[in-house]
């Protein structure tokens, strides 16, 4: 098992190098000169030449690539063209916001999704099945910028329960060790900040949660339907086990493998940042960071973000694979 994990972790290295090369050349093939975008209408030739030289863009592209690889090997992704901030710092500032939002969205999406999926499968072709299917289809198809405004108007304006946007009341100054405000406020024992941060999380998590919710519910339903027709379920029922136990222990556990895969994929995707949700709810996450970097052709930040996303994806896939073994003991990694 440990050997397996080690081997899987080693595979990360060539993946990272491959991703780096692809990203490096791909973003440079998009039209648009970063120096010109930086200076806009007001640029003049001397200023452009100077800025290009300072950003290292005056050197041949292949030389730039080797500099980039060499620095990356030392863990140095450079500084942002635009803000001059160290790229790793930029990511470490924005990622906790996205992680916090993702964890809550996945919690909502998984719990509700599993419940809806199971309910739909046990009431197949009934009105309950149709309702849950409708909910999950709606979850996938509703645009977040629309849903976001609707929930804000309903739950922040009409019923003023939750704040409209942001992560924390702007007049509160709070910094913690992890950057996950909810967790940090518990560590520091600051109940006021905990409550405020939690309230700020509800609406964006709900909106973002609808996306994984839909896929999880659909996958759970189809996977459950397959399992519920198998012999061992009939045996369990025949033994006189309570229905709830048959469904949630015997059936669900066996139906979980594809569901866990979906959860893993969704989790990885959300960690890449949800630009629309982050924009509507003024959430200072990594989705906005990366999209703004692409618009500004901020090469170091784009490279840093994409390599970071690739790493996260590989890492989550590894976790999912390990989880398989816990869910289904027949799966062993040798």
């Amino acid at each position: 098992m440990y050997n397996y994990i080690l081997r899987r972790l080693l595979i990360v290295i060539p993946v990272m190098i491959g991703v780096s090369a692809v990203v490096f050349f791909l973003i440079r093939s998009i039209p648009g000169d970063p120096a010109l975008i930086l200076l806009g209408e007001h640029s003049n030739p001397e200023a452009l030449a100077k800025v290009r030289a300072q950003l290292g863009l005056d050197k041949p592209i292949i030389i730039q690539f080797f500099y980039f690889l060499f620095n990356m090997a030392r863990g140095d992704f450079g500084r942002s063209f635009i803000t001059n901030e160290v790229v790793i710092k930029e990511i470490s500032i924005h990622f906790p916001a996205t992680l916090e939002l993702t964890l809550f969205s996945m919690l909502i999406g998984s719990v509700v999704g599993l419940f809806l999926g199971v309910t739909a499968s046990t009431h197949r072709n009934s009105i309950i099945d149709y309702i849950t299917t409708t909910i999950s289809v709606a979850g996938i198809s509703m645009p977040v910028f629309w849903l976001g405004l609707i929930v804000i108007i309903l739950f922040s304006i009409r019923l003023p329960i939750f704040p409209i946007s942001g992560r924390l009341d702007p007049t509160i100054s709070f910094k913690g060790p992890t950057g996950l405000i909810v967790l940090d406020s518990i560590i520091r024992g600051n109940f006021k900040v905990f409550k405020d941060a939690f309230y700020h999380l509800v609406l964006p998590s709900f909106c973002l949660g609808t996306i994984p919710l839909a896929s999880i519910a659909r996958m759970t339903r189809s996977s459950m339907l397959e399992i519920l027709n198998q012999d061992f379920i009939r045996t369990a029922k025949a033994k006189g086990l309570p229905n709830r136990k048959v469904i949630y222990v015997h059936a669900l556990r066996n139906a979980l493998i594809p569901v866990v895969t979906v959860i893993g994929l969704q989790f990885g995707a959300l960690l890449g940042g949800a630009v629309l949700t982050e924009t509507i709810f003024a959430w200072p996450g990594i989705g906005r960071l990366s999209v703004e970097a692409i618009n500004a052709r901020d090469y170091p930040v784009i490279q840093g973000c994409i390599i970071f996303f690739a790493f996260i994806f590989v890492f989550i896939n590894l976790i999912v694979d390990i989880l398989y073994a816990f869910i289904d003991p027949r799966i062993r990694y040798e």
């Binding site: 910028f145 976001g148 405004l149 804000i152 409209i164 946007s165 942001g166 702007p170 007049t171 924009t279 509507i280 709810f281 003024a282 200072p284 906005r288």
Partner: peptide
């Protein structure tokens, strides 16, 4: 305090 709220409607 300068607060960033990207969406004009929000």
């Amino acid at each position: 305090i300068f607060r960033v709220i990207p969406d004009n409607s929000v």
